[in-house]
Simulated assay, not measured.
Amino acid sequence: MPVVFRSEGFRFHFYSDEGNPRESIHIHVAQAGADAKFWLFPEVLLAYNRGFDARTIRRLQDIVSDHRSEIEEAWNEYFG
């Protein structure tokens, strides 16, 4: 599970096996038993949320938006 970065106590990562065929670029976010997934394109959009409150999801979406190019670069490097 490649970790792209950590911020504010959250782990932003993707899984080594992201489906066959591979899903579009996205990022998983985890912290203390909660997790969420965000699509990056065409805009940052919540795919699912398991355990985060609405305020935290808004904050996570902002963090993902701020790191969008970094996430895309890490994805492309890993999955080539």
Rank of each mutant, 00 (worst) to 15 (best):
Ala74Trp: 03
Val29His: 02
Arg55Val: 10
Arg6Asp: 09
Arg58Glu: 06
Gly33Ala: 05
Glu73His: 08
Arg55Thr: 06
Arg22Cys: 03
Ala36Tyr: 05
Ser65Asn: 03
Gln31Lys: 15
Thr56Asn: 00
Phe41Thr: 12
Arg59Asn: 01
Gln31Glu: 10
Glu73Phe: 10
Pro2Ser: 06
Glu72Asp: 12
Ala32Ile: 04
Ala32Arg: 08
Gly51Leu: 07
Gln61Pro: 06
Asp35Met: 10
Ile63Glu: 08
Phe12Pro: 02
Glu72Ile: 11
Asp17Lys: 15
Glu77Gly: 09
Phe10Tyr: 13
Tyr48Ala: 09
Gly80Asp: 01
Ala47Cys: 11
Glu77Ala: 12
His26Gly: 08
Leu40Phe: 00
Gly19Arg: 04
Phe79Asp: 06
Phe41Trp: 01
Ile27Ala: 00
Tyr78Val: 05
Arg50Gln: 14
Gly9His: 12
Ala74Pro: 04
Phe14Gly: 00
Asp17Val: 13
Ala30Ser: 14
Asn20Gln: 14
His67Ile: 08
His28Glu: 01
Asn20Ala: 15
Glu72Ser: 09
Pro21Glu: 05
Phe14Ala: 08
Asp35Glu: 15
Tyr48Met: 13
Gln61Val: 03
Lys37Gln: 14
Ala54Gln: 06
Ala32Val: 02
Arg6Cys: 15
Glu43Ser: 11
Arg6Ser: 14
Ser16Gly: 14
Glu73Met: 10
Ser69Met: 11
Ala54Arg: 12
Gly51Ile: 08
Trp75Thr: 00
His67Trp: 06
Arg50Val: 06
Arg11Cys: 13
Arg55Glu: 11
Arg6Asn: 15
Pro2Lys: 10
Leu45Pro: 10
His13Cys: 14
Pro42Val: 13
Glu77Gln: 13
Gly51Glu: 06
Phe10Cys: 06
Ile25Phe: 04
Ser69His: 13
Asn76Gly: 11
Gln31Val: 07
Ser65Met: 12
Asn49Phe: 00
Phe41Leu: 14
Ser24Lys: 11
Asp17Gln: 13
Asp35Pro: 03
Ala74Ser: 05
Tyr78Thr: 12
Pro42Glu: 01
Ala36Met: 04
Arg55Met: 03
Arg50Cys: 12
His28Pro: 07
Pro2Met: 11
Ala30Gly: 10
His28Ile: 03
Asp53Lys: 13
Asp62Trp: 13
Arg59Leu: 07
Glu70Cys: 10
His26Ala: 08
Glu23Ala: 15
Val3Phe: 08
Val3Thr: 07
Pro42Asp: 01
Ala36Val: 03
Glu70Ser: 05
Ala47His: 05
Ala54Asp: 10
Gly80Trp: 02
Met1Glu: 02
Ser24Arg: 09
Tyr78Phe: 15
Lys37Pro: 03
Val44Pro: 01
Val44Ile: 14
Phe38Ile: 08
Ser65Trp: 00
His13Arg: 13
Glu73Ala: 11
Val29Ser: 09
Leu45Ser: 14
Glu73Val: 07
Arg6Leu: 15
Arg55Asn: 10
Val3Ile: 11
His28Lys: 12
Ala47Asp: 04
Phe79Trp: 12
Phe38Tyr: 05
Pro2Glu: 04
His26Lys: 12
Ser24Phe: 02
Ser65Asp: 02
Tyr15Cys: 09
Gln31His: 14
Ala47Pro: 05
Ile71Trp: 04
Glu18Trp: 04
Gly80Ala: 15
Phe52Thr: 01
Glu73Ile: 06
Glu70Trp: 02
Pro21Cys: 12
Glu23Arg: 15
